[in-house]
Nucleic acid binder design. Structure first.
Length: 606
RNA sequence: GUGCCCGUAGCUCAAUCGGAUAGAGCACCAGCCUUCUAAGCUGGGGGUUACAGGUUCGAUUCCUGUCGGGCACGCCA
């Protein structure tokens, strides 16, 4: 049995009420299983249902006859007829018919269609919860940006995608842990510390030219000010000692001048070494201040974006507790390492990588890859059944080596999933907004959030498949107009609440009202959308594709707006009024829940 | 050069593990507020799914090749 079909998808996880009652799609599926036992008892075909795109093809369809035609050596039409004849009678089914080359279309009775309204109102926020995950533990690691500066709009996409994906997985029955990997151990952090220190020194009149490969943002100067307030001039050192042994900054005459870049990197390395020896413990002070300030800023930024983590995992901790050295030893013990040119190499090419990789440099320092192996081993040892890394698409070449390492350590690398998130281009007034990380002129997530708002930003980010480049239209995201998809969906929710408020009754009673008076085509369309919500959740979880949920919500909102325009809900006839209120109240439940999964508010008035 | 991703309406994008007549929004055209929010609705035109083959009952989807775009190819992280 392959994963993810209606048989599991529609098994509502609702242990509180009627735990043994099968969902409606499940019951339809059971009918087909029965028929299969009669018509083709030995066929190795998974019995699944699909939802026809086309109105007029019923509520459910089966392609069983088409799939069986070959093995049974009979025409599909004939098999379809036999299957239909073998279907047990059901009060849910109005009619079943063969269509096209051999599709079997199932039409529900009106009562069966209406039942979803009551189901939704009773389930509330539990509606749409599916058991795809069966409570299995999954970890989603995302953002994990170097804490060396503010998050930019690219990180924002990773944040929005990762957070939505984690929510969707949780809704689909996984036990989800959200984690942020803090790269607090590497050279980048040293560069940030030195950058801060140089700004600090400048505040005391130092004339040291600021290196082009340092961090140049205003936030660095701000941290230098903090440093001056907390440490006075105790960290001041003379220019000559700071610059001692540095080759000096090479002018970068053109982009990609390898020689000049290399010299500047050396310059920086010497500055770092000097800082460490000149400051002693004071260096740690600078380093820690920079790290904590940036992490706090990052956390605050993400929280305001509706993104919260269960755990912030420090890379440094893997060095401190010996994990990195241990994992390298394990690889060595397994015979997966060799020495060459003074460095230690991991034979990743033996596990599908295109070349071998260094884990310990000639100077004895472990590479980032080494700590990353330790980190992934740690994840697997924590007992997650599945580990999801959300990475920027530029890291795709990194996947094979991590999987190779996991395999070499005896883990099942197939349990590591790495959805890639493509780049973001901002558009303003129809033109691409230039972004340069070089000079600190990039657009930050905070600026984006301030400009377009959290809701629009979150929604726009997941409006594209994650592996697709995203053109982010700032003007559209800001516009309070019908062009803006986020308002379109929110407006549908607000409209419903407006009606409920005007009615003024107790919404909790709507779950019990008779629904027979609901009989217009638009009402049945809305019921179909309600029925499709668990399916949308499951598809989004299965494919790591929260954008499917965003599209679903747009469609549901469209159906609601259409209905709203064509139908007066608050009519004088009481039973009709209550039934219509129940229907739109159910729609509001789903809109609210879906938006919440995407980190978007569902306002009750706009 | 090698590897991965992508190519769908004028634009931005969907398309349920291969399904029925490839769908939305924007833009364009024509309509709808004395009625629960017009941030809305109704209708219309618009396609050789980059191109050429292959696999099969059936291909936007899978395979091969060509063209075009992006990314990655470090003892950086």
């Amino acid at each position: 049995m392959r994963r993810g079909h209606y048989n599991v998808a529609f098994n509502q996880t609702d242990p509180m009420t009627e735990p043994t009652l099968q969902s409606l799609p499940e019951r339809i599926l059971a009918l087909f299983r029965d028929a299969m036992r009669t018509v083709a008892p030995h066929a190795a075909v998974a019995v699944v249902l699909e939802r026809p795109r086309q109105a007029g093809h019923g509520e459910f369809a089966s392609t069983l006859a088409l799939q069986l035609a070959k093995s049974l050596q009979r025409p599909p039409g004939e098999i379809a007829a036999a299957l239909i004849k073998a279907l047990p009678p059901s009060p849910l089914v109005e009619k079943v018919e063969v269509a096209g080359p051999g599709f079997i279309n199932v039409f529900l009775t009106p009562a069966a269609k209406r039942s979803v309204v009551t189901e939704v109102l009773r389930a509330g926020s539990r509606w749409g919860a599916v058991s795809l995950g069966h409570g299995r533990r999954v970890q989603v690691e995302f953002v994990s940006s170097n804490p060396t500066g503010p998050l930019h709009v690219g990180h924002g996409r990773g944040a929005a995608f990762g957070a939505s994906l984690a929510n969707v997985l949780a809704k689909a029955g996984y036990e989800v842990q959200r984690e942020y990997y803090v790269n607090d151990a590497g050279r980048q952090m040293d560069i940030l510390a030195v950058s801060t220190w140089l700004r600090y020194l400048a505040g005391f009149g130092s004339k040291i030219p600021f290196p082009p490969n340092g961090y140049q943002g205003d936030y660095v100067t701000a941290m230098a000010d903090t440093l001056r307030k907390t440490c006075g001039h105790s960290l001041f050192r003379a220019d000559e000692s700071v610059l001692d042994g540095t080759p000096g900054i090479a002018p970068l005459l053109r982009e990609g001048d390898k020689e000049a870049e290399a010299r500047n990197e050396t310059h920086m390395d010497v500055l770092i070494a000097n800082a460490k020896s000149l400051l002693g413990d004071g260096y740690k002070t600078v380093h820690q201040l920079a790290l904590h300030e940036q992490l706090a800023d990052c956390r605050e930024d993400l929280e305001a974006f509706g993104v919260v983590f269960d755990r912030w995992f420090s890379e440094q901790s893997l060095y401190d507790d010996g994990s990195v050295a241990r994992v390298v030893d394990r690889l060595a013990a397994g015979g997966h390492l060799y020495d060459q040119d003074g460095a230690r190499w991991f034979r990743s090419s033996a596990f599908g990588d295109e070349k071998d990789r260094v884990v310990q440099r000639e100077n004895g320092i472990f590479t980032y890859f080494a700590s990353d192996i330790a980190y992934h081993a740690n994840k697997f040892e924590r007992g997650f059944e599945r580990v999801v890394d959300v990475w920027g698409a530029d890291h795709h070449g990194y996947i094979p080596r991590v999987k190779a390492a996991l395999t070499a350590l005896g883990f099942d690398a197939g349990r590591l999933h790495v959805p890639l998130v493509q780049f973001v281009s901002l558009y303003r007034h129809g033109e691409k907004a230039q972004m340069s990380t070089r000079k600190g002129q990039f657009v930050t997530l905070r600026e984006l959030r301030t400009e377009v708002g959290r809701d629009a930003a979150r929604f726009f980010y997941v409006l594209r498949k994650s592996d697709q480049h995203l053109d982010f239209d700032l003007d559209l995201a800001k516009s309070e107009s019908n062009d803006n998809p986020v308002y379109y969906v929110q407006y549908a929710h607000a409209r419903i609440h407006s009606v409920l408020q005007k009615w003024g009754g107790d919404a909790a009673l709507l779950a019990g009202v008779p629904l027979d008076v609901l009989d217009s085509p638009q009402e049945f369309v809305l019921m179909q959308w309600l029925r499709a919500y668990p399916e949308a959740v499951e598809a989004a979880a299965r494919d790591y594709a929260p954008h499917q949920l965003a599209f679903y919500l747009k469609d549901l909102a469209a159906a609601l707006h259409s209905y709203y325009n064509a139908t007066q809900v608050l009519v004088s006839e009481e039973p009709r009024k209550l039934a219509r209120l129940a229907l739109i109240a159910a729609v509001a439940v789903v809109l609210r829940d879906g938006l919440q999964l995407l980190g978007v508010h569902a306002p009750e008035s706009m």
